[in-house]
Amino acid sequence: MNFLAASIESLGAKIVRILTVGYGLLAFLTEALSALLDRNTWNRATFDVIVKQVYFTAVQILPVFLTYVLVISWLMITIILTTARDFGLGQFASEMTIRVLVLELLPFLTALYIALRSGSAINTEIALMRVNNELDALAHCKVPPMPFEFLPRLISGVISVVALASLACLIAVMLGYLAIYGLNTSGFEYYTRTISKILDFKIMAGLFLKCALFGLAVTLIPITAGLETPKKLFMVPVSVLRGMMKVFFAIMVIEVVSLALKYI
């Protein structure tokens, strides 16, 4: 009886904790949307911060990211082509390449890459700002942190994931053509027709929305996790670990829901 009561109590505590985290994310997102629609938010300083954040999140990592995309795309395309030819399905190789790489794998890996590089950095930075009372100092000086610290990071996260995922998908499409047809242009018409058949408006809209949600997840969750950090320096690594676990869970949920809506 005591074991059953303890189990129910533990389950209830977990549900309350999940609901509390969800409410915190929703409240922060609502505040961010209000700031986004506020004309007073948009000034030269805010634009400068957004540009810098996009540079740090997307532009600065381009050499490593392009290498990462080229290697993974080439390996996956080779595996897909070899498997398709072994089973006599070579005519479906181009469609399989687009569906596996462009629609699913590359956007997912792009979100993970940015989460590990930039999401963890954002979580650490916000947590340190809270521990060192920098956010309190901004409030004391009547400088709202939302338009200068939080909103630019949210916007840059969405822009960066969408832009880098689009670039990765374009590279994968080009590599797919080269792997299947080489430098021969005879397959160009069939290949482009296959792409247009798969990537219709509905699929493209869904892909854009998924990438935007990925970008929101890899910035929104680390910011809120950093703001929840207790004002003790040794709690910063714990905050980052918890934040990254939440980011990974959110990315998985977005991907699973996307697959379910698309194929079920």
Rank of each mutant, 00 (worst) to 15 (best):
V253R: 05
S196D: 06
K232S: 09
A111C: 09
V16I: 13
N2C: 00
L154C: 06
L138I: 10
P237F: 12
L167I: 13
T192R: 10
E125Q: 14
P144H: 13
I203P: 02
L199V: 07
V131R: 07
S239H: 07
L11A: 12
M129G: 01
G187E: 04
S73G: 06
D38S: 15
G157T: 08
I126H: 01
I80L: 15
I79H: 02
S73D: 06
G119M: 05
I221R: 04
P147R: 05
L4P: 00
N40Y: 08
A13L: 11
A58P: 01
M1N: 12
N132F: 13
F108M: 12
Q53L: 01
V143Q: 09
A121P: 00
I79R: 03
W42L: 06
L29E: 10
R39I: 12
G90K: 13
L4T: 12
T67P: 01
E228T: 10
F248S: 08
P144I: 09
E104V: 04
V54I: 15
G206I: 07
V64T: 06
V256F: 13
L62Q: 09
S94I: 08
A27I: 02
V100N: 04
L128C: 06
H140G: 06
Y68H: 01
L207G: 03
R17H: 12
I198S: 02
A260V: 14
A111F: 03
F248Q: 03
M96K: 07
F150T: 01
K262M: 11
I221Y: 06
L241C: 06
A84I: 07
E149Q: 12
K52F: 11
G22Q: 14
E104M: 07
L19G: 03
V21H: 10
I114N: 00
A172H: 01
A179F: 05
I77A: 02
L19Y: 10
P152A: 11
C141S: 11
V21F: 14
L26P: 00
Q91E: 15
E134F: 06
A217R: 06
T20E: 14
M252V: 10
G157L: 08
L112S: 01
I98H: 03
L151F: 09
M76C: 14
A165K: 00
A250Y: 06
V16P: 00
S10D: 11
T192P: 01
G119C: 05
L66W: 03
L75G: 01
L183R: 01
S239Q: 08
T30R: 07
I15H: 09
Y55A: 07
M174A: 15
G215L: 09
A5V: 11
T20C: 08
D136A: 14
A35G: 15
L241Y: 08
R39Q: 14
N184A: 07
A139E: 15
A137P: 00
N123T: 08
I198W: 04
L227W: 10
L66N: 04
T224G: 02
E228K: 14
Y190G: 09
I203C: 05
R153S: 08
P152V: 07
F28H: 12
W42V: 03
L233A: 13
